[in-house]
Amino acid sequence: MADEILSNSKSERVRRIASLARKKERQFHGRFLVEGPQAVRELLAHRPELTETVYTTLGGESWQVEIDRLASDAGVRLERATPEVISAMSETVNPQGVVAVARSWEASAAEALSGARLVAILHEIRDPGNAGTVLRAADAAGADAVIFAGASIDPFHPKVVRSTTGSLFHLPVLVVPTLGEAVEAAREAGLSALAADVRGSDLLEMRASGALAGPVAWVFGNEARGLSEADRALADGSVRLPIYGAAESLNLATAASVLLYETAFSQRSR
């Protein structure tokens, strides 16, 4: 740990770290921001090899001892900084006193999907909160991987990272150029691709048919437009989540959570 406390919020290093809030800079440097004690804790616990430096305040927060220990055990550089410096580094309005810089990674589709039974494919998902929540739900449901396809938001966007609350570091996350490539990779790994779509078969019918008990890759489309006809045609089938009340629809993250868990239940009941 460095003895000197970083205090210049306008230094070149602080500006460079803050620039990682922009996709262009993340791609150029191969680095991304991890903010908040929960996300940094999960980064250090599950992917310490990705961690470059952790910056924390000296506020005596309840998480400080654990973060310090995890960083020390992993041999990760730990530096103290003033609240003003942490704020300048952070993308959040009210930072929580800890920021880490981590190295981006590219997972191999063949390796990540080998033996997979449950996968989430996000196609043109633009909202970082939705993307992060679906990734978190996939992690909770025991999914083997999450694929960001097409023009989806960058999974290393600071808001996506925060909304996953650490799940980003628990399972393989892939980025592929097109939905077709994502579906093909899943199919080659032995998964059936099912599109979540209001024009699809009823979920209860699919459950009764046993289609959810085998390896499944769910395809989730854009929050506003859903999946186009061409997108749906890439999948092996499409499924709709029934609405029994008066709600017009469910948002993407809620619907994805239900479908992922329904599949997890089906796969574990046999």
Rank of each mutant, 00 (worst) to 15 (best):
R268V: 05
Y261S: 09
A140L: 06
N8D: 15
P95I: 03
A39K: 09
I17N: 07
D139E: 15
W105A: 12
A145I: 02
G142R: 10
E42Y: 14
S238D: 11
G180M: 08
A186N: 09
R207E: 15
P48L: 00
A109C: 10
N222P: 01
A151F: 14
R41C: 10
S238Q: 14
A151M: 14
L44V: 10
A185D: 05
S90K: 00
T57K: 05
G30Y: 12
L135Q: 07
V65M: 12
Q38Y: 12
M1Q: 10
L171G: 01
G226S: 01
V119P: 02
E124R: 14
R187P: 04
P172I: 03
S152W: 06
S72T: 13
L259Y: 07
G237E: 12
E25H: 15
V98L: 06
P155W: 08
I86S: 05
S87Y: 08
E79G: 00
T133M: 12
H46G: 00
L44F: 11
N8F: 09
V93F: 08
R126N: 08
Q38C: 10
D73F: 11
A100W: 10
R26V: 07
V101E: 04
V54D: 03
S87D: 10
A2S: 12
L212S: 05
L118A: 08
S7A: 14
